[in-house]
Amino acid sequence: MKMNFIVKATATVSAETKCEELDEKRIVPKMMLRRRLTRSARIMVYLADACDFREGAVVYGSAYGEMQATADIVGAIDANEPISPTAFQNSVYNTAPSYFSLLHGNKEEILTISSGDDTSKNVLQTGALQAVTTNAEVLLVCCEAINIPNIDEVNRCTDYLESGVALTLVPTGDEANVEVHQKEHKGFAPSLWAMLDVLDACDGKDGCIVALEL
């Protein structure tokens, strides 16, 4: 089942190692909260800010989740050292959008998708469903932050150890005015490709309307 959606805002960020200009001090003025943010959370709140989105349903996606927190926990267990409670609370896949909800007092639904290479395809489908369900603007974010020591031992999927893509959707009865074409986004993790396809289709176009599968 396909339905049509206005793509109101888009944003993307990537870096071979670390995204440096995430404007954290302005976006997250409370130091205690800022210090606790994971790299994924920093990218997520930056992208949400770039989309001018603070309140509403959020669908977040990541194929590999919170890699640094996970590595910290497993490393501590292996070394027979205490696990940081903060690392454990930051290890769940919904960490980044939860910090977004804390930051803005957003009490709407958060769903987190982790479907491997199909992650952003499923984020688009789930975001479309949430937009139809709530009949309101929904934020979709897909992010991979895998810049941890020795990641080169397993990383075969991306040149960018930190990358993210975001867009907001609003349901509409109007006809689609752009076509989304699937392509390979060289250097990016495949888990981001489907959303990058939408960004490419809407690049520079106001009032971009896309047809999305639910």
């Binding site: 769940v92 958060i110 987190t112 998708i113 982790s114 499923n122």
Partner: peptide
């Protein structure tokens, strides 16, 4: 088709 959700 399939999807996976992970919200703890």
């Amino acid at each position: 088709d399939s999807r996976s959700i992970s919200t703890a």
